[in-house]
Design a protein around this nucleic acid. Structure first.
Length: 684
RNA sequence: GGCGAGGUAGCUCAGUUGGUUAGAGCGCCGGAUUCAUAACCCGGAGGUCAGGAGUUCAAAUCUCCUUCUCGCUACCA
């Protein structure tokens, strides 16, 4: 195998929460396996990751918790970094986007593109809501449509006549945030005109050609990745703003851009580059070697960020010039947990750092299970029951047991010394051929990013060993033909030595244990498949149990722990700041009876309700159709916020709002009077 | 709502350019065995390949429709 060069990145974890099993199964573990395998084959590889620490979500969270964004990201960068270390994900570097070197790198990157004219700078007068102290997106402005004169047309489109608008076209504009007339304020943003890149993107993704030259094999990209990219491209790419009005992030390195930062999705992938720079600095290397030339760039990501890695970042890389584009973007689907979607906010998750704390000696067990169920082609599901079954039935019974019987027999018959290989039978030769074939299969699968199958193939080597022993019955032959047993045991030990090799990418700690048992270690994949890994007379050690079985009580405990999180109200916000009595008095809340309801067309969550409020019958659009269907809400007496300024939603004017209670799981419930009061009753 | 990806044995999943009785692992049932963590080994049962229609000598595989799940997006706080 010729040596190749790889730069492998794992999606930067967003530093506003800890890591859960979904992240691990779908990005970090597969990339780690891939990289470990590459290293064993002596490819030149850099494995890059780090914390993604910018973006509006972090500032919002900081505001909510009353701390600085820096405190948030420091906290989670710490938790995440520590967990990766304990779980033994073998990054060459785990960096962070809040570092100085990243800010410099991202700014420089931006400047290069700006200097080359790859951005269109739109300095425009935009509407600004003084009460909310922010610029208004098109959709947050309504006004009268200049062509059909309908009121409440949106800033980007009039729903009535369908004409495309810009906010400044509107007559008598209003902010939907405060309801007031926004003022014009000058702001400039840098846009990436993605539509200029459609042609080469199409050729690159569909045919794997870049500038007419072969770049990669598109059939190796996952369906989902090609499908979603083509869907975006065929739908027509549009300019996308690469800067934001925010105070947390990489400041735009251009005069007069105060209060602006790089869009987090421009900033974050550049984090791969800045992390490489930091690593190069510390290891006396040149970072450019890892981002130029005939090097293969591979991005491991989750399916939710395909377009950023397969469209937007490639545009940026190509526009920058000199830099390589991804050779593949293996995107993983999602992992579910015990029948429900993983959710950070609802605390429905198995957190990696908590697992590590509970089971510090069971890292490989978790790795094995997660690789077995890795969501490569579709969403998959983790259950503790399956965790137990995989470990007990496969790791312990098949792998652990084989290793144990081979080594224990060696202890028993030869005091641990490897017996010589004698004359081979046809059966032996057949087994030896399979020992050779398995690593080849694993290798082919890994290069195709089929890691779960690759791992299963590694387990087949242990199966082969078990079957070989069962077929040969050395314990019986020992009485009649001890010379023959020497050959059998030699082969069994060679299988064990091969296991210590082929398991390394998947189960590094277990592979090390095997090496200790055998007193033999090699990290050269090219040695795999050989049957002379350990020589005759070599002394092996007494084995210990490789895998303890998982007791039922563990499963029960973990499931109970999860169920308990359903009941704990962890997700509730802290109390808001004081409101004056005057402010409260302005709010008009009354009981209303829903007298009619229908689903709003072309909208997932909306119900159009007709409500009798005691003083009138009005239409209210409510985003509750995931929780209530139209039939069941009719006749309900609910709480209505009366004096919210009317707003057009999906072309229908909503005159007020139905107040809902929301629990920690995000379920919504009407708030109904305890006594049967009539519609119109005020709520004070 | 638009687009994308999925729906294959009880469970987790393979099925390459359509081609003989649809596969693997685990679970289940039966058998054999004792070197081994009551493990291993052999055998068996179990599938209208989400549902319907079509193209074809032939469809899990191609086309259309319906339905369910997930993601992106729109809209919703």
């Amino acid at each position: 195998m010729t040596k190749e060069k790889f730069t492998v990145t794992a999606a930067l974890p967003y530093a506003n929460g800890p890591l859960h099993l979904g992240h691990v199964a779908g990005v970090y573990l597969p990339s780690d396996i891939f990289v470990r395998f590459l290293r064993m084959n002596n490819h030149d590889v850099a494995f890059i990751c780090g914390s993604d620490e910018h973006g509006a979500a972090i500032t919002l969270r900081a505001k909510k918790e009353g701390v600085t964004p820096k405190e948030i990201v420091d906290k989670y960068d710490g938790i995440i970094g520590k967990a990766f270390k304990a779980f033994d994900i073998s990054f060459d570097v785990f960096h962070r986007t809040s570092s100085a070197i990243h800010h410099e790198t991202a700014q420089e990157f931006f400047k290069v593109l700006d200097d080359k004219g790859h951005f269109t700078k739109e300095t425009s007068e935009q509407y600004y809501d003084e009460d909310y102290d922010q610029f208004l997106a098109d959709r947050y402005i309504t006004g009268t449509c200049p062509s059909c004169k309908t009121e409440d047309a949106y800033g980007d489109q009039c729903e009535k006549c369908g004409s495309a608008l810009s906010p400044t076209d509107l007559i008598n504009p209003k902010s939907t945030l405060s309801g007031k007339t926004p003022i014009m304020r000058s702001t400039s943003h840098w846009y990436l005109p993605m539509q200029n890149h459609e042609q080469w993107l199409k050729e690159w993704i569909k045919e794997g050609k870049l500038d007419g030259i072969h770049h990669h094999d598109p059939s190796k990209w996952r369906n989902q990745v090609v499908g979603q990219c083509m869907s975006w491209i065929d739908g027509g790419l549009r300019p996308r703003a690469m800067t934001r009005d925010l105070d947390w992030g990489v400041t735009v390195p251009v005069e007069g851009s105060d209060g602006k930062v790089l869009y987090v999705w421009m900033d974050a992938p550049i984090g791969y580059i800045s992390a490489t720079k930091q690593w190069a600095l510390e290891n006396n290397k040149n970072w450019k070697d890892y981002w130029t030339g005939d090097r293969k760039l591979v991005h491991f990501i989750g399916k939710d960020n395909i377009v950023f890695h397969a469209i937007i970042f490639p545009i940026l890389l190509k526009a920058h010039g000199d830099l390589i584009l991804p050779e593949n973007v293996p995107a993983y689907e999602f992992l579910n947990l015990e029948g429900a979607k993983l959710s950070t906010s609802r605390n429905w998750a198995v957190w990696l750092h908590e697992y590590i704390e509970s089971y510090p000696d069971k890292m490989d067990e978790l790795k094995y299970v997660l690789t077995s169920i890795a969501p490569e082609a579709k969403d998959s599901e983790f259950t503790w029951k399956e965790y137990q079954a995989r470990i007990n039935n496969e790791l312990a019974d098949i792998l652990g047991n084989f290793v144990n019987r081979a080594l224990v027999l060696t202890q028993k018959y030869y005091a641990g010394k490897v017996p010589p290989l004698g004359k081979l039978t046809d059966h032996d030769k057949d087994v030896i051929a399979q020992i050779k074939a398995i690593p080849e299969k694993i290798s082919a699968l890994v290069y195709k990013y089929k890691l779960r199958e690759a791992q299963a193939e590694a387990m087949n080597l242990a199966r082969l060993g078990n079957k070989y022993l069962a077929d040969m019955e050395p314990w019986r032959l020992m009485k009649t033909d001890p010379v023959r047993v020497e050959t059998i045991m030699n082969i069994a030990l060679q299988i064990t030595a091969n296991l210590s090799l082929v398991l390394q990418p998947f189960l590094p700690a277990t592979a090390d244990k095997l090496s200790e048992f055998l007193d033999f270690k090699t990290t050269e994949w090219s040695a795999s498949g050989k049957i002379d890994l350990i020589s005759a007379d070599h002394l092996t050690n007494k084995p210990s149990i490789l895998f303890q079985k998982i007791e039922d009580t563990i499963v029960e405990l973990e499931v109970a722990k999860l169920e308990a999180t359903k009941k704990i109200d962890t997700a509730f916000e802290p109390q808001k700041e004081d409101a004056t009595f005057d402010e409260f008095s302005k709010i008009d809340i009354r009981l209303g009876t829903i007298i009619d309801a229908e689903k709003v067309k072309k909208a997932d969550k909306l119900l159009k309700l007709t409500v009798d409020t005691g003083i009138d019958k009005r239409t209210i659009i409510s985003g509750i159709s995931k929780h209530y269907n139209a039939e069941e809400v009719i006749g309900k007496k609910v709480t209505v916020l009366m004096n919210l300024p009317p707003r057009k939603i999906r072309g229908v004017e909503s005159q007020g709002m139905i107040l809902m209670a929301e629990d920690a799981q995000g379920n919504l419930s009407f708030m109904c009077p305890e006594k049967d009061f009539e519609a119109g009753s005020g709520i004070h």
